[in-house]
Design a protein around this nucleic acid. Structure first.
Lengths: 345, 345
DNA sequence: AGCACCTATGTCAACGTAGTACATTTCTGT
DNA sequence: ACAGAAATGTACTACGTTGACATAGGTGCT
């Protein structure tokens, strides 16, 4: 790399070379005002020669001081779920020439406001956030200043904002009903951590579907870890070690799904299993899951942002993305005592 | 959302409220010049009252017109490999208060320059790119203007730039040697597509390790798809349908790994298998792989950017990240004709 | 007292772009 | 031929921040 560093060309430089004023160059480049064909040619040639590239910073400053980047704030960047959501956001934004800024809070609720603050100082156009702190009211002022805030996966706390969530209850309900249809009555539920909105919703779905089938004594089969990081493997082991163990297990989130399956893999007699969130190999391994489209989740979030930028008024919208059960075998394993069981005497 | 939209407070607004000049506010906020304690208090109070947030756009414009975002340009955002690299970049940049802009080219070589151009117009501070086009010489001008360019996973074509790549040859060589040690002589290599630098390197590693063991007739076991999208499943089927099929197969990239394993899963007699790039479940399923740390790959790339920003001079650096074989069983399956084979008569 | 020096603050201009206002030229129609 | 419209170009300025420079008052030393 050379030590020399030629200066970046500006509108004025191009104007000088082309022998016109800066404004004329601006017009020629943007095609806004009217410029003669000869002049336009000359300007374009000069611009190309100088490798001129309009400074978006200056342009944005001139135009109200906002960038055209949308920030996506997540807790844990290594969770594949977020990655797919990010993909959806990026693609949707790209159709409008906008870009995505990715930031993480490392799952620390306390750092959410700090990270968001830094992003706002950068004048992001909008904020898409997976809420992790218990309170998003700190964003109220910013919202009033016209920065759209869209929550993904879970709604905000103490803040009026658009959001995109999954049909959590319906998804788990479908899973429970499916297991009941195969003959299961003792169904476990493993999920972590307990305090998240999504997990609460899924727990409610689990309970309501059981109740619907007249099963009222399943509390002992619920295992929601109180803290992040507690392993779902342990929960599964606990459940199977009960005197009257469940014959089927449902996992309430993607990390719990993989952990639970790890524990159930190679165990016999087979325990029926349904996970939440599809993943690579789930098809090859024959694992039934409650699936949804994370990319679409991101796209919807981005669409909400675009809609809000277009028209800031109107009530907040909450979009519910459908979930659906994919039957691949693991969820269709009958209970050992079923009449059609192969282990029957 | 209210239709009203109060204006965003500026330095001047804060100054007016605090009864000082704009410059004093600037000093008080940045802690740069000297400001008396009383004044600082008054300014801070005024700033808080007005919810003042310094406009990074303006600040950056004042300082040479560059943002503090680094763009990461990838081909296919749904490839988990890139996601982990992105995670590494984001984390490393965050330590320096910089942010990551994510952009994709949808694996279309032609759109690389277009996407990059848009990013440069946004005055990104640096560029981290997974080269996909055949020629990155279009970045030469920008590099001379002081924008660091770092290539990830593969080096740039026709451009002097720092890069971070994997020890591709060594990784595959280790895999081949390991298979040979177990007794294999007929080893297949599946990878796609053929034209990528990484895949070429891995192919060379495959060949050299075989040669080292005196195996010279393995060309018929090489299956590199000429085009993106061709399935590795087919390649595996082709290999196993040969009159003299290989007893072991190595996959040269992550997509090929999963595809190949899908095909080999449940097939008997078992074919030894070693994949490239670790993935979830590989441990549970007992799949041996040539692994590396994608997050570290991203971190290194970000470090190169930071180093280059710090000191633009000096020769380009190419960092090689280590790869290592993780033995989990699938790569330790002996050939059917081995003396210690369980199928021996 | 005189001087150097330091602190606390203020004034002005500039970063690069583009909107507003206005000046100039060229082209219409009567 | 001439008013008026249309086409084309220029000058000035603001966007929000900060560096360069200036100023006013205070402190310490000779």
């Amino acid at each position: 790399m050379t030590a020399e560093q030629q200066a970046r060309a500006t509108l004025a430089d191009v104007a000088r070379l082309a022998g016109v004023s800066a404004k004329t160059v601006s017009r020629a480049m943007s095609g806004d005002g009217s410029v003669s064909e000869v002049t336009r040619e000359r300007v374009m040639t000069a611009a190309k020669r100088l490798r001129f590239r309009p400074n978006t910073l200056a342009r944005n400053l001139r135009h109200g001081g906002v960038t055209n980047s949308v920030a996506f704030v997540i807790g844990d960047i290594t969770n594949p779920f977020y990655f797919n959501v990010a993909a959806g956001i990026e693609r949707e934004l790209a159709t409008k020439g906008m870009t995505m800024l990715l930031a993480t809070t490392d799952d620390a609720p306390g750092s959410e406001a700090v990270v968001v603050d830094a992003l706002l100082a950068q004048r992001v156009r909008a904020l898409i956030i997976v809420p992790i702190a218990k309170d998003q009211s700190y964003l109220e002022g910013e919202r009033q200043l016209g920065t759209p805030v869209v929550c993904v996966d879970r709604p905000a706390h103490h803040l009026v904002a658009d959001s995109v969530v999954l049909q959590n209850r319906l998804g788990i309900e479908e899973a429970v009903r499916s297991l009941i249809a195969v003959g299961h009555r003792k169904i476990g539920f493993v999920c972590s951590p307990a305090e998240l909105y999504t997990h609460q919703e899924r727990l409610l779905g689990y309970r309501s579907a059981l109740l619907e089938a007249g099963i009222t004594d399943s509390r002992r089969y619920e295992r929601l870890e109180p803290v992040l990081g507690a392993t779902a493997e342990e929960s599964v082991r606990e459940l199977l070690a009960l005197d009257d163990p469940p014959t089927a297990i449902i996992a309430g989130n993607n990390r719990a799904s993989t952990a639970a399956w790890r524990e159930l893999f190679n165990r016999s007699p087979r325990v029926a299993f349904i996970g939440f969130d599809d993943f690579e190999f789930a098809d090859t391994l024959g694992i039934s899951v409650v699936a949804y489209d994370p990319i679409e989740l991101g796209r919807e979030a981005a669409r909400l942002v675009l809609a809000r930028l277009d028209d800031p008024s109107g009530p907040p919208r909450q979009i519910e993305l459908p979930t659906h059960l994919i039957r691949r075998g693991s969820g269709e394993v009958p209970p050992p005592d079923a009449p059609d069981s192969t282990i029957a005497p």
